[in-house]
Design a protein around this nucleic acid. Structure first.
Lengths: 335, 335
DNA sequence: TTAATTTACGCAAACGATTGCGTAAAATAG
DNA sequence: CTATTTTACGCAATCGTTTGCGTAAATTAA
């Protein structure tokens, strides 16, 4: 086996009897190099398949030309679509996108953020896991060098870039729709308490109920993190004690847990209990009975988040102006 | 705003009146450094929140401590699970995992492979998109420096590491099951012709038919890449001309396209036509009528692939022995 | 007590690229 | 024909680490 080591500038410079700097400039099409020399260098470089070492380039240039995105779970269609939106604009601007997943573990998240900082990613797109305060602390400790745009789950303060969908409005509409369908005892399967999306969706849900003259029953509101176990316990308990006639689920996974639990109920409840939930799953519309879906403009959110991030990266020294974009979600699969 | 630049070794060395090399060795707990000095350096470093610059480290060490995985689509549960398996073992061994998706574009794939090579990833896990020959060429051009393990879609030659599931056996069982259900005119929605999984699944399908005394009708075999358009045209044509009484779908997406198309048929076909397909979608079991699923041990495949890769990375100079692992898939949702 | 060894540190070269500056030769100006 | 500018290249520093080697001082051996 030929231990075919990648060719570097000095290899070319030796072969052509030129200095390394001349070779470098020739390849970068510098005006300081004669046309003839350029041609020779470039053709030789492509002949021997020269590819600049990005590690070395990054060290010199102090940038890496890639951005990182940290999501809870890539198999979640919502986040997958966001990633696609991010890739769409980033690739167009010559940036690569590196994807990390936290599996909703704060510990993993912190490790990843540290790593992203140490590897000198040019920017970070972040949808923080549950634990707000820990993450805040890490973000401080890595210094002000790393531009960040938050999406979906965002901090409450205003000194950062944020992209979200209008969770309040979406929750309001979804709940109102259930009410229109004649439902009164509407349970809310909420995400972890304390994070932005949970708070806003709960608010929209409550507002819709009140707006329809229905009082908000705390017993019907259940917080779950994303472990199946917790959601199931909540569902079982709700069914035993309160038998809601509808569910409003606050996340992709909760929507499907809900759906599954309801399908396992004896008839006629299994078909009568309506479910509406946040989900971007491509195949949600195949389910019978229907799972009504609040679909977020995930691809668009990704695009916008990436644009904001790349803007702050390239316009580094200008004075920053924090953006807060809120996009509408749409309700689908309402028969 | 304090332009809080990351602290580097020379900052520490100046502050403590030590040489850079001493600081470096102290932080790496070298035996050449006095205990007292170590303590001073380490405590100061942690006080000022020193984090080594991984770019610089990588350049010096000639490794990056991360591996790349290239998949067609992260939203596909099969690949998402593979990624999870990979992360599981890689993280345990101190490696990070960088995820790229090709969206089944050969062009994107080639760009990504080149980038992975230039960024000096320590290894690559690859499930090549459709175009075999192009990818082969790129893999040659980037030189022998990058250890690669193929999974799912693998090259035919034996001089590489491969992890797959037993596609032939799975297809055989799935088709046999359909036959047991009394189906005779079984259509096969195949993936792109020419890639390993398509070939093996087709072979298993054909063998099962022949084993049951049913002749293989080429009209019932349709190749689609993963564009919705192509699959739909095939489905429509099949329905118009041949009205199969069952479908065997060769991929996640094809399974769902099939399912959707069949559900749109007039009764009684919509409920009578059975579908069995490869899918690792978590909620496939929620569908009614059922979508019978060939579930691959994706997490396990990811684990094994990562182990093989990390083995070849760490045992670099030893003589390589190519591995070819084949795991069984299981048939689920058969009522 | 002197010689040999160990301890504890600094100097400088690397890793592979980019770039400011210096400088011969060539081209242009006067 | 001399003076100045331009062209076309090389030298060497730099990015932030790691590490081989050299060497005083401290310790041990003889």
């Amino acid at each position: 086996m030929d231990q075919e080591r990648p060719v570097k500038l000095s290899d070319i410079s030796k072969a052509l009897n030129l200095s390394v700097s001349t070779v470098s400039r020739a390849l970068n099409d510098s005006h300081e190099i004669g046309e003839e020399t350029k041609r020779i260098v470039q053709s030789y470089a492509s002949k021997v398949n020269y590819r600049p070492n990005l590690i070395a380039q990054s060290l010199k240039e102090m940038n890496t030309r890639y951005i990182a995105i940290i999501v809870p779970e890539i198999s979640n269609s919502f986040f997958a679509e966001i990633v696609n939106g991010v890739e769409f604009v980033a690739n167009n601007q010559g940036y690569h996108v590196v994807i990390y997943q936290t599996h909703d573990s704060t510990e993993r998240e912190i490790n990843i953020i540290r790593d992203v900082a140490r590897r000198k990613a040019d920017g970070l797109l972040l949808s923080p896991s549950t634990n707000q305060t820990d993450v805040n602390e890490v973000m401080k400790s890595i210094g002000a060098k790393l531009p960040v745009v938050y999406f979906d789950r965002v901090p409450s303060d205003n000194y950062c870039h944020k992209v979200v969908c209008d969770n309040y409005q979406a929750a309001f509409e979804a709940t109102s729709w259930l009410i229109q369908q004649g439902k009164r005892r509407i349970a809310h399967m909420a995400g972890p308490s304390g994070i932005s999306i949970s708070i806003e969706r709960l608010a929209g849900y409550s507002a819709a109920l009140l707006h329809a003259g229905i009082s908000v029953d705390p017993n019907l509101i259940r917080y779950s993190n994303f472990l199946a176990r917790e959601a199931w316990d909540n569902l079982r308990d709700l069914e035993e004690k309160y038998q809601p006639d509808a569910y409003f689920a606050s996340s992709d996974r909760l929507s499907f847990y809900c759906y599954e639990a309801v399908q396992m109920l004896p008839e006629p409840r299994a078909t009568e209990v309506k479910i509406v939930g946040f989900t971007n799953a491509t195949f949600a519309h195949l389910l019978r009975p229907k799972l009504s879906a609040i679909v977020q403009p995930a691809f668009e959110m990704g695009k916008i988040a990436a644009e904001m991030l790349l803007n702050t990266i390239t316009k580094k020294n200008k004075n920053i102006e924090y953006g807060f974009i809120k996009l509408p979600a749409v309700l689908k699969n309402t028969e």
